[in-house]
């Protein structure tokens, strides 16, 4: 069935375009002066509408990301200061873009957590490859890798954006642990 949409029949003065142009100019002027007013009166941003601000001046102001936000993957330590990763390499294999490279090594004997078989000698995540999918966090049997909220990484070279073990641990920090699975092994 065809639906015929009736075009409105314009009156002669509407056909002149001028009423419409004038109406449009009124709308744009209203927005213009309101924004200029806000800007001059120090509110500084674009017009603040019911849906919130239109412009956010980014480097000075940042979005408050929600808690479940998937930002950069990082390595964490438990409250005893032990690196939780056991270098099982599951994350390395699950990572879709192959951003993770792990070099495992046996934990040197004198360390208190030497009961664990291995730890990563080097742990690299290439942030230029990472797609923030969170699979590494999901797959990790030790809850050793977490995606935090950081999302903005800037570097001047490709090397700078490959996060090594130190950087990952520094970003990850300490995380409360309920189980202490390896403590009394």
């Amino acid at each position: 069935m065809t639906i015929k949409i009736e075009r409105p029949v314009l009156k002669w003065h509407e056909n002149l375009y001028f009423p419409a142009i004038w109406g449009g100019i009124k709308v744009t002027s209203r927005h213009f002066w309101k924004t200029v007013g806000n800007w001059i009166s120090g509110k500084k941003y674009g017009m603040i509408t019911s849906t919130g601000r239109v412009t956010m001046e980014y480097p000075e102001e940042k979005w408050a990301v929600p808690n479940e936000y998937r930002g950069a993957p990082t390595l964490v330590k438990d409250p005893d200061g032990r690196i939780k990763c056991v270098a099982c390499q599951l994350c390395e294999f699950v990572c879709p873009p192959r951003a993770i490279t792990i070099t495992p090594e046996p934990i040197p004997g004198q360390l208190p957590n030497a009961t664990v078989e291995k730890w990563p000698k080097e742990f690299e995540i290439d942030m230029l490859r990472c797609i923030y999918c969170g699979l590494c966090e999901e797959v990790c049997p030790e809850e050793a890798i977490f995606l935090l909220k950081d999302y903005s990484f800037v570097g001047e070279s490709r090397e700078e954006l490959v996060h090594n073990k130190e950087r990952l641990l520094e970003l990850g920090g300490m995380r409360q642990d309920k189980i202490y699975k390896w403590k009394n092994k």
Binding site: T35, V54, E57
Partner: peptide, 10 residues
């Protein structure tokens, strides 16, 4: 600048 102000931007 003017277009930005008209569109509530900066």
């Amino acid at each position: 600048r003017i277009s930005a102000f008209i569109q509530d931007r900066l």
